[in-house]
């Protein structure tokens, strides 16, 4: 058996698994209980947030804490436009508003590196929340907003579609020259610039693409939330969650953030419903143990197992 047949076999198996998963998830609302669909929507949302985050921050090493800002923009778009426009238009708008915000932020933060970039983006989340509050208070006089409700199956399919498109984009980015450029920025930004990579353009565009998907996720989820105000929409939790989920899964591979987010979100659901009074304690202990024993995330652990299995 030569290497190429092994590879083909592998990719055929991989392709089959993906196809089966796609079909299972498409047909799921037909036979699964309603709450399974709702829970999966939430898990998909976390996967979208995490994969989008990892799309930019994974290869470049820039830790963005802006997801909550983009997510909140999506939510607010749904709250403001939801009653006037068709759902799909609202969601795409949510994505584009986030996209443009990300272009602006990206252009502003070019000089910032490392922790300064992270905290800047976090400050941005808080600033938007406070300014929005000020605006609603003194200009529009709004006191919280009801968001138009949508059936859970519709929300599920939209979130699912969002996720599938995001994954296709992510695979494309990883495999293309674009992805190579991103990784070279992560390794050494100055060197990348010298070799002719348009560092600025690559960074900003990727940042904006990742923001687009977070924004659409926010616009979709808002319809499940029903009622929002600035601090509910711009909740810093949604900046930290994707980072933690991605580190938990491991950022080296595309599927690291995916399984990281899925397991993290499911584990959390399990704990808040089964051990509600000790959820934080158990979750905290799991986080500490996880990072102690799998410093490279789940991906690192699985890769180690594979190697170990081969030797034994």
């Amino acid at each position: 058996m030569n290497i190429s047949t092994v590879l083909t076999k592998r990719s055929v198996v991989g392709g089959l698994v993906i196809l089966i998963l796609l079909i299972i998830f498409i047909t799921l609302p037909l036979y699964a209980p309603a709450y399974t669909v709702i829970l999966l929507t939430a898990i998909f949302m976390y996967i979208v947030l995490t994969v989008s985050w990892a799309l930019f921050s994974g290869p470049t090493g820039y830790m963005s804490l802006a997801p909550a800002a983009f997510f909140g923009v999506g939510i607010y778009t749904a709250a403001i436009l939801g009653m006037k426009l068709p759902l799909i238009v609202v969601i795409v708008c949510g994505g584009f508003f986030s996209f443009f915000l990300a272009l602006l932020v990206g252009a502003l933060t070019l000089r910032l590196r490392g922790i300064y970039f992270a905290i800047f983006t976090f400050g941005l989340v808080m600033l938007i929340a406070y300014l929005l509050l000020f605006w609603e208070l003194h200009v529009t006089g709004t006191r919280g907003r009801f968001v138009i409700a949508v059936g859970h199956n519709t929300v599920y399919y939209i979130m699912y579609g969002n996720l599938v498109i995001l994954l296709i984009v992510a695979v494309f980015v990883r495999r293309s020259k674009f992805g190579l450029a991103l990784r070279s920025i992560g390794e050494n930004e100055d060197a990348a610039a010298h070799t002719g990579v348009n560092v600025t353009l690559v960074k900003i565009v990727t940042f904006a693409i990742s923001a687009f998907f977070i924004g659409t996720a926010g616009a979709v989820m808002a319809t499940r939330w029903t009622y929002i105000d600035p601090f509910i929409a711009f909740n810093p939790l949604f900046s930290f969650m994707p980072v933690l989920m991605a580190i938990f899964g491991g950022t080296g591979q595309l599927w690291g953030p995916i399984i990281g987010a899925a397991i993290f979100a499911y584990l959390e659901e399990f704990l808040i419903t089964r051990f509600p009074y000790y959820y934080m304690l158990i979750f905290g202990i799991i986080l500490v143990i996880a990072i102690l024993y799998m410093p490279k995330g789940l991906v690192g652990l699985i890769q180690k197992w594979r190697k170990g299995g081969g030797v034994v």
């Binding site: 939430a42 989820m221 939330w225 939790l237 808040i272 419903t273 959820y279």
Partner: peptide, 9 residues
């Protein structure tokens, strides 16, 4: 009783 973590979603 479940814990909503003070989060709307």
């Amino acid at each position: 009783i479940y814990d909503d973590k003070s989060d709307m979603g």
